[in-house]
Simulated scan of single mutants.
Amino acid sequence: MTVVDWLLDADPSMRRLVQRDLLGVTPEPRALVERTGWGARLLALAGPDGLWDGGACFPFSFTFSEPGQPWTATLHTLQTLQILGLDPMSDSAQRIIGLIAAHGRWEHDGQRYFDGEVEPCINGRTIEAGAYFGVSVGPLVERVLGEQLADGGWNCYPSPRSSFDTTLCVLDGLLAFERATGGSEEVREARRRGEEYLLARELFRRLSTGEVVSPGYLSFAFPYYWHYDVLRALDYFRQAGGFDPRMAAAVEVVRSKRQPDGTWLLDRIHPGRVFFDFEEAGRPSRWNTLRAMRVLDWARSSAVGDLG
């Protein structure tokens, strides 16, 4: 069995992405994500009000006493369904989104779900979901544009310095908004500045010393939620456009983690409550393998020189 065969022998959401991104063929119908496998399981877990586990960012029952951050609330589940490729115009998706718009309130101060709250990392992901599912999020985009820091990125905490994690969450949202609406020159310029923040640091280094900012940035998890790593960053740039030579070191990190059998491992799982595990940490990961293979294919076809 080849690596691609192994990837195809999986959940329909995975098969569709392999067909589209690696094989370049017409993928199976999106309806399969809604009806079977991981997508159907997650949809079935939504409450009558459209929320997952009774909350926007945190489950209704969360008391901050359990280990890790729970990942069962609406924000994280919507992001996962986007990654799985749920058809945003399907009856199930539109019903859920309508319910979330009507009933979803942020734990911060009861703000309506698609109005966002105060943290750019949360608002970037809310913009991404809104754009994907056809919700108007223009005012929230304006908010995050006004919160861009002088160094080009964003941070969820009061600081003159940006955060890799927050910056990528906002960039994901702005890119989705551009794709859904055409965007504006203001949005494109903000996104370019945010990208430059990451590129100036080669996607994982400190600007001041060149040292690795965090070992976690070189460790690949799935789902990633709000967490940053270089595979997630490169996958963003793959979707956003052209290759920049300053990505080469990050590409080499991805290439170096390929196992002898051609797969990539699930390096870790971000701790916290989940509905179910997609994969097992320390074992070959279809999600990391798919993402790594399409990033390396893109880098090879875009960059000058051999990137493995």
Rank of each mutant, 00 (worst) to 15 (best):
D115I: 03
R232A: 06
A46W: 00
T263Q: 07
P223K: 12
T36I: 12
P120C: 00
G282V: 11
Q239Y: 04
N123I: 06
A248Y: 05
F133M: 08
V295H: 03
A150K: 13
G183R: 05
T77L: 04
Q79P: 00
R258D: 03
L145S: 02
F204G: 06
L231S: 09
H227E: 11
W298H: 10
F177H: 13
Y236L: 10
A10F: 01
Q239G: 07
Y217L: 10
F62D: 13
L207S: 12
P29D: 11
T181Y: 04
L198T: 05
D267E: 09
L290G: 03
F276S: 05
A248F: 04
R20P: 08
Y132P: 01
S92R: 15
V213R: 14
D172E: 14
T80C: 11
S163N: 13
L203N: 10
W226A: 08
G262P: 09
M89V: 09
A102F: 00
A233Q: 04
F278K: 05
Y157G: 06
R286C: 01
Y224G: 02
T289K: 08
P29W: 12
L45S: 13
W106R: 06
A292R: 01
D109Q: 15
G183M: 04
N123V: 04
M247G: 10
P29Q: 13
I122G: 03
R291M: 11
G98T: 13
E117T: 15
G39V: 04
E280P: 00
D9W: 01
E66V: 10
K257H: 09
F243L: 11
L45D: 05
F114C: 05
R205G: 01
Y157T: 10
V295Y: 00
D91C: 12
E117C: 14
G262V: 11
V212P: 02
C57A: 13
W6M: 04
L265C: 03
G282M: 06
D261V: 10
L168F: 05
E211Y: 09
A44R: 13
L199H: 09
G55V: 05
D91R: 15
P67E: 13
Y228A: 06
D151F: 00
T167E: 04
P215D: 13
L265K: 12
A101L: 09
R41D: 11
F204L: 05
G24M: 02
A56W: 05
T77E: 08
S208F: 08
E107V: 13
G54A: 05
G272A: 08
G153C: 04
